[in-house]
Design a protein around this nucleic acid. Structure first.
Length: 560
RNA sequence: GCGGGUGUAGUCUAGUGGUAGGACGGGGGCUUCCCAAGCCUCUGGCCCGGGUUCGAACCCCGGCACCCGCACCA
């Protein structure tokens, strides 16, 4: 563990010195839980997001949306966050120290977390709870919100979103239509989330403003969910009961350990992490304990990665059931259901009532039309009917309506879709990638980030062997040539060639191009591969193609 | 939020009541120089605020941040 926490320090040191990330607002003394991404970190983040989009949005055919960070209070009442994302605090009137109200009451009652503020206040008084620090009298419970509040316009209360998910749920009807009213439907959103953490520590791992990539996958709970080619992916699981197993996705579903959609997204996530360069031996899916589940969740599996601080959640795959759509339906009054189509439309014969206007007209005069409408919409019944009209009870005689047989064709039934939510913590992934990529060569504490070429912020360094003409000029031309091909590269002629390789290795540059004296004779340059430190010569005119193929993974270095 | 620790150049660090020294890095230069080579040269620092003092990087108080533990947490 000693070595592990040294690793965290080393990553943090490189991050700041070379420009991956650093604490925000340092010149004003800093602000906890906020980080800046520097020139390298921003590109690394972009590359990871780009890979995520390819891996999920493109390959799983997801609908990508982008909704606001600020949302109205009512929406967060509906989502449950306004209520559940709150803790009650009590402050000591004497020493001013603050405590969580339910914590103080734990010793004298059961389930204090279920109390509202009045209940808490009553319980504190009844049990004569005093300040644990000084014994002073405690004040009235106050809310401590894990959501940041703000105001829209003059006085409309609003929140900064704690997750991007709500922006997807509330748009379900539009998205469902855009998906041509078909399920399953996956919707993705990449953006920021905000949580006013009580104690944000550990660098990028616990931020108050963080980047997330979320998928809300809407399914019909009654429909099959085929795993396809993910069936044989081997998943490392740690169940709620503490069982550790490595098992094929398909088998885990058969044994009832996982539901199909959860197994599917585990397999997909595993492949994504592999592409990022996460060490597969330091990765597991851990099932949440019952009491650990978020208020909206019925089952959750965290994908955890072993880092210097222990196992850290980087992805959460939650079964949110129909919780969110149901709540938003209730609070907004809108229809958020989907249609489950029958294989063949059902034809049903129904008995209905139809008003006879020739009888109703003379009987009820001006009110006849309204009464007829009510009768037409009534379920089948017999005998005289009593209906309410403008607060009055009205008796409609049996002969004022007739019974008709109608045949209706019903194409399907409406239901509230269930949601599977794979949620990715981008900042945590960035940190995990850095830790898992870091190693030192035997000589002189030489530091290397073995970032995969696809996500490495800089793909190539171009060096003249000596900073002399015409070598330097040729090297500069190569930089221009590569940039025109879209390869992010840089020129460096400072210090010895070894030092330039070392600088490049430390920030994960996968390939270095060197212009030497041979170049002047036959227009070839060397490509040096970062991890093997081996070199090969290629013609300048082939350099662009070969480098791009190396970066994309279409070509292995040994094949060049 | 509680308890303990820490805060000196970009990074790591020496110093301790008389306002800072090193190493590495970074810039420029020299050396036909392929894995942090050598030489010359330049660059740059006491977390912030208040107090004690003739004088504070050092002592005291407050703040901010970081680390360890507890608690909390998607």
């Amino acid at each position: 563990m000693q070595i592990m926490s040294e690793l965290r320090v080393k990553i943090g040191e490189i991050a700041k010195r070379r420009g991956f990330y650093w604490k925000s607002y340092e010149i004003y003394g800093g602000l906890g839980g906020f980080y800046d991404y520097g020139p390298l970190g921003s590109v690394l983040k972009d590359n990871i997001i780009q890979l995520w989009k390819e891996h999920f949005v493109l390959k799983d055919g997801l609908l990508l949306i982008d909704s606001p960070n600020i949302g109205p209070e009512l929406m967060y009442k509906a989502s449950g966050h306004a209520e559940k994302f709150t803790d009650y605090m009590v402050k000591c009137k004497k020493c001013g120290h603050a405590f969580r109200a339910d914590e103080l009451l734990k010793s004298c009652m059961e389930n204090p977390e279920k109390l509202d503020e009045k209940g808490l206040w009553k319980a504190i008084k009844e049990n004569n709870v005093r300040c644990p620090d000084c014994g002073g009298e405690l004040g009235y419970p106050e809310r401590f919100h894990l959501m940041f509040t703000t105001q829209v316009g003059l006085n409309k209360k609003a929140f900064l979103r704690p997750e991007t998910a709500q922006g997807i749920f509330i748009n379900f009807p539009i998205l469902y239509r855009l998906n041509r009213e078909k399920l399953p439907m996956g919707v993705a959103q990449i953006g920021k989330g905000f949580r006013n953490e009580i104690s944000p520590r550990q660098g990028l791992l616990r931020l108050r403003e963080f980047n997330m990539a979320e998928i809300e996958f809407f399914i019909d709970p009654q429909a099959d969910f085929p795993l396809g080619e993910e069936e044989n992916v081997i998943l490392p699981l740690l169940t709620r009961e503490g069982k550790e197993l490595k098992i094929k996705a398909g088998e885990a579903v058969e044994l009832g350990i996982l539901s199909s959609p959860i197994a599917y997204f585990m397999a997909r996530s595993l492949k994504f992490l592999r592409a990022l360069g996460i060490d597969e031996n330091k990765l597991r899916f851990r099932q949440h304990f019952k009491e650990e589940l978020a208020h909206y969740s019925r089952d959750t599996w965290d994908c955890e990665v072993l880092l210097s601080q222990g196992w850290v959640e980087v992805i959460g795959i939650a079964d949110r059931g129909d919780y969110d759509l149901k709540r938003h339906m209730h609070y907004s009054g809108r229809d958020l259901t989907a249609l489950r189509r029958f294989k063949e439309p059902k034809r049903i014969k129904i008995k209905k009532l139809r008003a006879k206007m020739d009888v109703l007209g003379p009987l009820f005069k001006g009110e006849a039309k309204k009464i007829a409408e009510i009768i037409d919409n009534m379920d089948y019944r017999e005998g005289d009917i009593e209906i309410e009209l403008n607060g009055k009870r009205v008796k409609v005689p049996e002969n004022a309506y007739e019974i008709v047989f109608e045949e209706e064709s019903i194409g399907g039934e409406r239901f509230i879709p269930h949601v599977i939510e794979p949620s990715f913590g981008i900042d945590r992934l960035i940190y995990a990638v850095l830790e898992h990529s870091y190693y030192e060569r035997a000589e002189r504490g030489y530091k290397v980030l073995k970032l995969k070429p696809r996500i490495a912020p800089i793909k190539a360094g171009v060096f003249p062997l000596m900073s002399k003409e015409p070598l330097a000029k040729v090297a500069r031309n190569i930089v221009t040539l590569l940039r025109n091909r879209g390869v992010n590269c840089y020129y460096d002629d400072s210090g010895s060639i070894g030092r330039r390789y070392a600088r490049a290795d430390e920030i994960g540059v996968p390939f270095c191009i060197t212009v030497d004296h041979t170049t002047l004779e036959d227009s070839t340059v060397t490509i040096r591969e970062r991890d093997s430190m081996e070199q090969t010569r290629v013609k300048i005119e082939e350099l662009g193609d070969k480098l791009i193929n190396l970066i994309e993974g279409n070509l292995k270095f040994e094949e060049v």
